[in-house]
Measured scan of single mutants.
Amino acid sequence: RTAFSSEQLARLKREFNENRYLTERRRQQLSSELGLNEAQIKIWFQNKRA
Rank of each mutant, 00 (worst) to 15 (best):
L22A: 03
L30I: 08
R25L: 12
R27N: 09
A39K: 11
E33D: 07
N47H: 11
A3L: 11
Q40W: 11
I41G: 00
E24H: 11
L34R: 00
A39G: 09
S5K: 04
N37P: 15
A50E: 11
L30K: 00
K13I: 15
A3D: 13
R11Y: 06
E24N: 11
R49I: 12
L12E: 00
F4V: 06
E38Y: 04
Q8E: 04
Y21E: 08
L9S: 04
S32V: 15
F16A: 02
I43C: 13
N19A: 04
L9F: 04
R20Q: 13
F4P: 05
T23R: 03
R14L: 10
E18K: 13
K42D: 15
N17S: 11
K48I: 08
Y21M: 07
T2W: 10
R1S: 12
S31M: 05
I41A: 00
R49G: 07
Y21A: 04
Q28H: 09
A50Y: 08
E15A: 11
A3T: 11
A3F: 11
Q40D: 15
E7V: 07
W44P: 01
R25P: 08
A39E: 15
F4M: 10
R26H: 06
E7N: 06
Q8R: 01
S5G: 05
F45T: 00
I43L: 13
R1I: 12
E38V: 09
A50M: 12
Q40I: 15
R1N: 14
A3R: 13
L12C: 03
Y21H: 10
Y21W: 11
K13L: 15
R25T: 14
S32L: 14
Q28V: 09
N47S: 10
E33H: 03
Q29V: 08
S31P: 01
A39T: 11
E7I: 06
L22D: 10
W44G: 01
K42T: 14
Q28P: 01
L36C: 05
K13D: 15
E15T: 02
L36H: 01
L34G: 00
Y21P: 04
S5P: 03
E15F: 04
R1Y: 09
N37D: 15
T23G: 08
Q8S: 03
R20V: 06
W44K: 01
Q28Y: 08
N47V: 11
R27V: 15
S6L: 09
G35T: 03
G35V: 03
L34S: 03
R26F: 04
L12T: 00
E18I: 09
K48W: 10
R49N: 13
S5Q: 04
K13G: 09
W44T: 00
T2E: 13
F45C: 02
K48T: 13
S32T: 12
K13Q: 15
E38C: 06
R11I: 12
T2I: 12
R11D: 03
R20K: 12
E33G: 02
E15H: 03
L9Y: 05
Q40F: 11
L22P: 15
N37F: 07
I41D: 01
E18F: 07
R49T: 10
T2H: 13
R25Q: 14
R20E: 10
Q40E: 13
L22F: 03
Q29A: 11
N47E: 13
A3P: 13
T2N: 12
R27H: 05
N19I: 03
R49H: 08
Q29G: 04
Q40G: 03
A39I: 14
T2A: 10
I41R: 00
S5E: 04
I43Q: 13
N37C: 08
L22Q: 02
E24Q: 12
K42E: 15
L22N: 02
R25D: 13
K48R: 13
L36K: 01
E18A: 08
N47F: 10
Q46D: 14
G35L: 05
N17R: 10
F45W: 15
G35S: 06
N37V: 06
S31R: 03
T23A: 04
E15L: 04
F45N: 00
R25K: 14
L34C: 02
R1K: 14
F45Q: 01
R11P: 00
R1D: 15
R49M: 13
N37A: 13
N17D: 12
R14F: 09
R25A: 14
Q46C: 10
T23H: 05
T23K: 04
